[in-house]
Structures are given as structure tokens and as C-alpha cells.
């Protein structure tokens, strides 16, 4: 299935868009999502290991299972303040 992913900061610049579509599988974990992201968006490959993944506005670990209805966002470590 296709899921929309929000991108911010350097991730947005590298992909050239603030929102991308990614083809996910059934039972996609965050770890698998990182692999899919690298495959489908080579421009993000270099930073994928460092990206933070937020699901429904919460930080999640790599074994977290992504719900097809969830809001996904990817971004580098934050630098506010």
C-alpha cells in the first residue's frame, strides 16, 4: 500500500519535497520502513540511518509496527532553541 510521509529540514531539502509517497508492505516495522525509504528514495539514503521516525507524532523504536492509517514523519535530529 502507499503511505504519505512528511519530511522536514535536511530530509525535505534532499528529497526536494515536504511530502513523499512510499510503498509499504503488510506489517511494516520502522526498521523495514528505513530500508524501503532508502530503496525508493536514493537521495535520502545517506541520512536514513540518522533519521528520526515519528508515528502519529510520537517517537518510536525500530521494532515498532506501522499502522497503515498512521501519520508518518521523518526528520534529522532536532536543533531548536
Amino acid at each position: 500500500m502507499k503511505q504519505t510521509v512528511k519530511l522536514f529540514a535536511q530530509a525535505k531539502d534532499l528529497a526536494g519535497s515536504e511530502s513523499i509517497e512510499i510503498q509499504t508492505e503488510e506489517q511494516t516495522t520502522v526498521a523495514r520502513f528505513r530500508e524501503l525509504l532508502s530503496e525508493q528514495y536514493p537521495s535520502l539514503q545517506a541520512i536514513v540511518p540518522h533519521l528520526l521516525i515519528a508515528i502519529d507524532m510520537n517517537y518510536v523504536s525500530d521494532d515498532f509496527l506501522i499502522n497503515p492509517e498512521s501519520e508518518i514523519a521523518c526528520f534529522p535530529p532536532v536543533s531548536g532553541g
Partner: peptide
């Protein structure tokens, strides 16, 4: 806030270049 709140800053350096600040 500096670890958890999703806000990012981009430096505008005096030599005219710009650079996202992404801590490691």
C-alpha cells in the same frame, strides 16, 4: 526541548553559505 521538540535551525554563515544544524 532541544532533544524532543521537532524544530530545526539553518545557519546563514557570513561567507554566504547555509547549513542545517543536525546534532549527532
Amino acid at each position: 526541548l532541544k532533544i524532543h521538540v521537532p524544530v530545526w535551525k539553518k545557519e546563514n554563515w557570513s561567507d554566504g553559505t547555509t547549513e542545517w544544524v543536525h546534532p549527532t
